Amino acid sequence: MHTTDAPRIAIVGAGLGGLACARILQLHGRQVTVFEREASTGARDQGGSLDIHGGTGQTALRAAGLLDQFRALARPESQEWRVLDPTTADALPVTVPVHDDDSPEIDRGQLRGLLLDSLTEGTVRWNRAVTGVQPLEDGTARLLFDDGGTEEVDLVVGADGAWSRVRPALSDATPRYDGVTFIEAGFDDCAQRHPHLAGLVGEGTMLASAGSRALLAQRDSTDHIRVYIAFHAPRNWPESSGVALDDTAAVRAHLLKMFDGWHESLLDLVRHNDGGFVDRPVFVLPAPHTWEHVPGVTLLGDAAHLMPPVGLGANLAMLDGADLARALITEPTVDDAVRAYEGLMLPRSAEAAQECAAALDHLLPAEEA
């Protein structure tokens, strides 16, 4: 094993968890490189708004020295939930799971930008796709890149999400479809172009649900509303329904039929979106997802514990990154650090996976046969 005072640490994936880990390591003078397959920070849309919880995501940001900057960007007013009756659009008591009273919202892209800007220039190597990892006999690991290159390091941290290229070095588990899909739609410049929908959604998140169907809508800092049309369906639902996803009119007609009987104002969230529809099926890893310790390799975030998207994923990923960084700073060796981290993260993620599954079942109960 490489035994200098500056172990070679490679993080695969420039998501929130990997970047939080890198930031904290650099704050404490540690060397770290982040490898990211995307070409640049703006290569794709980073998604919607996140509620950052006091006991998880904010804990990581505090360790990263970024809590005050996060607070300056965050929107406390947007943590509000509005729950509406699907047939009348009247307000109902809020019974959705709430994590704590201090969970301000921030756009995912803003938060990622905050973390990226905090890193030393050159930390992230863009357009550097990792295709696999080989643990070596001396406790180090070899990174394999899509251009045929390799690099040996003391620790590879798989922070590369649901379809991790690092995970196979530790586990044979692969994500499975959970039987639920979210169809995403969007509305731009809502205050001016869609004031009735802006009023319907409010400053935060709106939910209307009935049985195994739900509409969620979320407003971000740019006055964009993202709508998620959620329902139980087979993985091949477009083919089995005779609908092509790139045929916006056909998808819209199919969804309107599915939500027949809902209030007209809620159906406008399906009728008048800007652009098309995006299918976002829910995939999860087996729970609990564990592995036998392998020197030189570990995982964090969705690579380690892919769960239903009910508000915990980003928070847990950042907490994972902070806990791993803290262990690498305080433990005497890299291997001691990874063992300490996995001993903390694995049972925590097993419990969280159960909570997330229960929350999705509460939101979207399966229809009885």
Rank of each mutant, 00 (worst) to 15 (best):
I52P: 03
W126C: 10
R37E: 12
S40W: 06
V32H: 06
R75A: 03
L115M: 08
Q58I: 12
R37Q: 13
R30L: 15
P93Y: 02
R75H: 01
G113N: 12
W126E: 14
S103A: 13
Q110S: 00
R125T: 13
W163L: 13
R62M: 10
Q69F: 02
L111T: 01
A72L: 10
D85R: 01
T95D: 15
E105T: 04
L116R: 02
V124G: 09
G55W: 11
V83F: 05
A39K: 07
G48W: 07
G132T: 11
I106C: 06
E151F: 09
R128M: 11
H53Y: 01
L119S: 03
L50A: 00
Q69A: 11
A141I: 10
S164P: 00
R62S: 13
D117P: 06
D160N: 09
T120C: 07
D146I: 10
G47P: 09
G57F: 05
Q58F: 00
L92K: 03
T88G: 01
D51K: 03
V133P: 15
V83Q: 04
G158T: 01
S103T: 07
A63P: 03
A129G: 04
S118E: 09
D45I: 08
V124W: 07
Q31V: 00
A64V: 12
G54S: 11
P93I: 15
A60S: 09
T140D: 12
R142K: 10
Q134C: 14
H99G: 12
Q58M: 13
R75N: 06
G132I: 14
E80F: 00
A39Y: 07
L111R: 07
T140E: 12
G148E: 13
R37H: 01
F70Q: 07
